[in-house]
């Protein structure tokens, strides 16, 4: 009897620290965000708000959502467009380009050592500390000392095409945002895809070669169709994570002077939804409004998750490198 009880209690004992952390850092903030999204909490009424937490003196309001959806915030539509550009373009790199990359690395390049070097080179940004990655880019694009402009000139790009500032001049700043995030994100797809390609039985590829396929036809007719599930998985996963990610943008456009990160990101046209929420909260101190903006993202995320689960089925989604053979 005591033994049976121990067996039931033991896992919970082990799980307790993690569950407590999840509750504190994940579930509680979710509820707080929902609550705050319906308040007018800001730096001005912060102390009074804390004092009156959960009392009738705190103003419960839907003004925040009115601002998001009814044009109360004139800037929100541009944030929406930038977010679409960001998620769409980086997704193209992370889920699409990384597929071409993986086929090249795992199939077309027969030399194992070269293939490994190529794989590692795409993993470098992921294993570099994020802040270093951002710093290196900042140096790289510097108009005075950076290597990027001289390199582009060297391969024949006319001077007139080069921006005076990669950070600020649209659309260069937006291209930079896409490239910088794509370079990090492509490695995720690459890991999933190369594992999947390597798990395709060699016989299948040999059969296609004997049937008369060129390398390109093998990739198109055999490899890509067999990667359907990994592709769907990477696309779903990357959409969700791109919607919520702004760290690299914050690190690159956040450094450098003049009006703080929010100002630069806005002027540069790289203000994505999640960064906008962050800047509203931590540079303009409009906590209530920032929560409301986040909440919209949370709802979009949940809707997408439900859609993906419906489309692919939860269990299949949880098997990243599945190949149908």
């Amino acid at each position: 009897m005591a033994k049976g009880l121990g067996r039931k209690a033991l896992p919970w004992l082990f799980l307790a620290p993690m569950l407590a952390l999840i509750a504190l850092s994940w579930i509680a903030p979710l509820f707080l965000t929902v609550y705050l999204g319906f308040t007018d909490l800001s730096i001005k009424n912060f102390l009074a708000f804390i004092r009156n937490f959960f009392t009738e003196k705190v103003h419960i309001t839907i003004d925040n959502f009115r601002r998001v959806f009814m044009g109360g915030d004139p800037y929100i539509s541009e944030v929406f467009k930038v977010t679409l550009l960001y998620v769409g373009s980086v997704l193209l790199i992370n889920a699409g380009y990384s597929l071409l990359l993986s086929i090249s690395i795992a199939y077309l390049v027969r030399n194992e050592i070269l293939s490994m070097i190529l794989r590692v080179s795409w993993l470098i940004p992921r294993i570099t500390p994020g802040i270093i990655y951002a710093l290196v880019w900042n140096w790289f694009i510097d108009p005075k000392y950076g290597l990027l402009n001289p390199m582009l000139s060297a391969i024949g790009v006319p001077k007139a095409w080069l921006p005076s500032s990669w950070l600020l001049d649209k659309p260069y700043s937006q291209i930079l945002m896409i490239v910088v995030n794509g370079y990090i994100g492509a490695s995720f797809g690459m890991i999933v895809y190369t594992a999947a390609i390597k798990s395709i039985p060699p016989d299948l590829i040999n059969a296609a070669l004997v049937d008369g396929a060129s390398d390109f036809q093998v990739a198109r007719n055999v490899i890509i169709p067999l990667l359907r599930w990994p592709m769907l998985f990477v696309t779903a996963w990357q959409t969700l994570s791109l919607l919520a990610s702004y760290d690299v943008i914050l690190m690159i456009w956040g450094s450098g002077g003049g009006g703080g990160y929010a100002g630069i990101a806005r002027a540069a046209g790289v203000m994505v939804w999640s960064l906008y929420s962050y800047s509203k909260a931590f540079s303009e101190y409009m906590y209530g409004y920032a929560s409301a903006i986040s909440l919209v993202l949370v709802v979009i995320g949940i809707v997408l998750i439900v859609v993906y689960f419906k489309l692919f089925g939860f269990r299949r989604l949880m098997e990243p490198s599945r190949v149908e053979v």
């Binding site: 016989d203 040999n206 059969a207 008369g212 396929a213 060129s214 055999v222 359907r228």
Partner: peptide
């Protein structure tokens, strides 16, 4: 010559049918 220029037909031990 690459396989495609040899006009050979092959049956593999695993059959290697295209599952899709």
């Amino acid at each position: 010559l690459p396989p495609k220029d040899r006009n050979v037909g092959m049956v593999f031990q695993s059959y290697a049918l295209y599952p899709h």
